[in-house]
Nucleic acid binder design. Structure first.
Lengths: 182, 182
DNA sequence: GACCCTGTTCAACAGGTGTTGACGACGCCT
DNA sequence: AGGCGTCGTCAACACCTGTTGAACAGGGTC
């Protein structure tokens, strides 16, 4: 049965949590195997043992499965009500997107993962709602959302940091609708 | 007179150019004193001699004086025509903003410089044009422009990378006007 | 009691980093 | 010709990094 949960799984998860936090706050290069290990209280070699390599640790920490909602029945004016909470959730300090965003700044592979999220999830999800030249329209929406993430989580532009999510939704609602349908 | 321009100034400028290019393409951590030195064809110690420290080199490479234009006589619908070319120019691969943006991803000090650009230049420049709650309005505009920079230069979202600047202006014109005046 | 298996630590490696101080060429001024 | 300031290099340092392989504790099984 292997029912007896060895501590293995727990410490593995603890390492993953610490890694996600550090990758999310300091980026890839400034996060070291040693810093993650001491944060958890284990030996650096144990981190290697579980994840093989630093890149392996990063991939495990940044792995994300996004379930993009079905928006085909949503009115353009209400897309923001669905999209914004979803992305705000993914961008939490302990979420999987922030490590990826920080790493993408100096790592093409991480940027490609981010690009893949946009290409394979955001674009197909929004395409049915967009008028002519949908790629451009959706790219502009994606850029705007990305910009809000950077402004909030990385640069720290005060009015956006302090803005409640529903206020953000209210601001974005007409803009996203405009981008979708002109 | 010291009129005889020693080569000093030239190599100093060459180092600065190489540093800006590397900081802009690879970020702070992945850019090393040695890589900059070999790109210029000099000894690493010379880089130290001119800029004292790696942070000194970065500050010199990322120093920027922005002359934000006077927009007080500009109609909201035309703000994009001024703002977008200005920012596109600052974001060129060899411009001073991209190193800052990449470094900001893992360096609070760099993020603060970026925040200062927004606080001391963008906000005062746009405030006369904004309706009520101008901070939020301007923050949203800044976030959008920032997002387009990230989408173009870091993530590489194809439709935005390929989009000519005047098309970008055309897309942003009504959105910026909307953010300014509701 | 001997054995193994899992979870973990120890000690060390090879390489790359920022930084330093002493040293060498080269051209100008007197 | 000799000295000197400028422009630059050499060699080394101390440190930190990812990574490795051997060793250790402890508990369940024969």
């Amino acid at each position: 049965m292997a029912a007896r949960t060895a501590d293995s799984e727990a410490t593995r998860a603890a390492i993953l949590d610490a890694a996600r936090a550090q990758f999310g706050q300091q980026g890839f290069d400034r996060t070291t195997i040693r810093s993650v290990a001491t944060a958890v209280g284990v030996d650096p070699a144990l981190v290697m043992h579980y994840f093989g390599t630093k890149n392996g640790l990063f991939e495990a920490a940044a792995r994300l499965e996004i379930r993009f909602p079905d928006l085909s029945a949503t009115a353009p004016g209400e897309v923001a009500d669905v999209l914004v909470p979803l992305f705000v959730h993914l961008w939490r300090p302990d979420g999987p997107l922030l490590p990826l965003l920080r790493a993408a700044a100096s790592n093409r592979a991480a940027a490609d993962v981010l690009l893949g999220v946009f290409t394979h999830h955001v674009t197909p999800g929004l395409a049915p709602l967009a008028a002519d030249r949908p790629e451009e329209r959706i790219a502009l929406i994606g850029a705007h959302l990305l910009g809000i993430a950077v402004a909030r989580s990385i640069v720290g532009i005060a009015p956006l940091v302090d803005m409640p999510d529903d206020a953000l939704v209210a601001w974005l609602r007409p803009v996203i609708a405009h981008y979708l349908t002109d």
